[in-house]
Design a protein around this nucleic acid. Structure first.
Lengths: 210, 210
DNA sequence: AAAAATCTGTTGCTATTGCAACAAATATAT
DNA sequence: ATATATTTGTTGCAATAGCAACAGATTTTT
């Protein structure tokens, strides 16, 4: 498997070819896409950060997905959903590659190597997306906030091979990611500190258990 | 896109080819695989039902995934995880196709059409797995049991295009799927009935709201 | 550099949920 | 057909988490 960076570079080099991809830039705060009647759309975030936002019937806003470099998203990867409106909002300035899900499976007329490689890269991205989603489900299925936090820390810790980790987003976003109330999460963090499980300085957290 | 059934038939027709897939049968209750040091393994459930089970450090058992026809699973789709043990257990008799993640990307020497088709089919399965996972995340991120249930019913209802739906597994399993306590979920179901939102007879549920 | 916006930590109150335990109903195995 | 295992419904109690509101810290914008 190639490195994250090689995939990045490959994707950024894509212009309009047999695949009919298009690149678009978005400013912070703009809507990248909505999940509504675009069943064939796939998108790759080339750089920047974006959130998948749900507004439910009560008007409550929830961040149900967070995208960063090389994240793949789009309505094609979502259940057809009647009752919620889903938006992808640019959290920072973003560059996004758009293409059609159908195009992935139609044979290239020229049978070009570009076509083949693009298709392989997309598949790898999709698989890493699956890993991401499974990671999140692991966390979401923990029964309480404490276990969600500790499991999350463990994942970061084993990725970094270190007991000192750094939360890659704000605590507000972390609460959304774990789908818990922010203040309840902060309370639980305080308890973990009191009880000697962790030390915390800003976004740096040191795990004191083994 | 081909029908579910065509994909099924294609997969069942696979013997040992350039891809080196192997087929295995399992009896109800047997362990299909463990997620431990098999980072390259991918599996497709050809028929039967299986659960992905997590035992955490406290020995608590949680069903974190439920697989049925054409579900794709395997450690390759999971985060490398130190603290939990994951098992896939056959809930009924099962037939499972095993192959290696690596093989998906290595070029076929014979450049055979079988190779190409297999690879495409796998990708489609993976994409439908992504849709499944996103569906579950939609549900898991709802803040309370009531919303989880109603959203779940809505999804079934819009799939079936009917206000009368049938829960495809036991209520015990549904509670696991939504990651809530079973008795608390039953209580909430009773409230929904009392308040006139739904009618319920066994696994048949009729939605009384619009 | 000042102003505005966002994020963080805290706390009281309350609703929701999990847990435990049990009986009745179903489903499965012998 | 009978025995065994599993699923379902119910309830009291306790723990947990959500909500609301606010002040201080930090970051971003102008």
């Amino acid at each position: 498997m190639q490195s994250e960076e090689e995939i990045s570079n490959f994707l950024k080099s894509i212009e309009t070819r047999c695949y009919k991809t298009t690149k678009h830039s978005f400013l912070k705060g703009e809507t990248i896409t909505t999940y509504l009647e675009k069943r064939n759309q796939l998108c790759i975030l080339l750089n920047g950060e974006a959130d998948l936002i749900r507004y439910d019937f009560n008007g409550n806003k929830t961040i149900i997905g967070q995208f960063s470099n090389n994240s793949i998203f789009g309505e094609a990867l979502y259940p057809a959903n009647t009752n919620n409106e889903l938006f992808v909002l640019a959290k920072t300035n973003c560059e996004v590659l758009f293409f059609s899900y159908d195009n992935l499976w139609t044979k290239c007329r020229q049978n070009c190597s570009f076509h083949k490689e693009f298709s392989e890269q997309i598949n790898k991205l999709i698989i890493s997306q699956v890993v991401e989603l499974n990671t999140r489900i692991e966390l979401l299925t923990k029964k309480n906030i404490r276990d969600k936090l500790l499991s999350y820390f463990d994942i970061l810790s084993s990725k970094k091979l270190s007991k000192t980790i750094s939360i890659p987003f704000t605590f507000t976003d972390l609460a959304d990611y774990l789908s818990v109330d922010r203040s309840a999460m902060t309370r639980e963090l305080s308890h973990l500190i009191e009880e000697g499980f962790i030390e915390k300085k800003g976004k740096k957290i040191k795990l004191l258990y083994n």
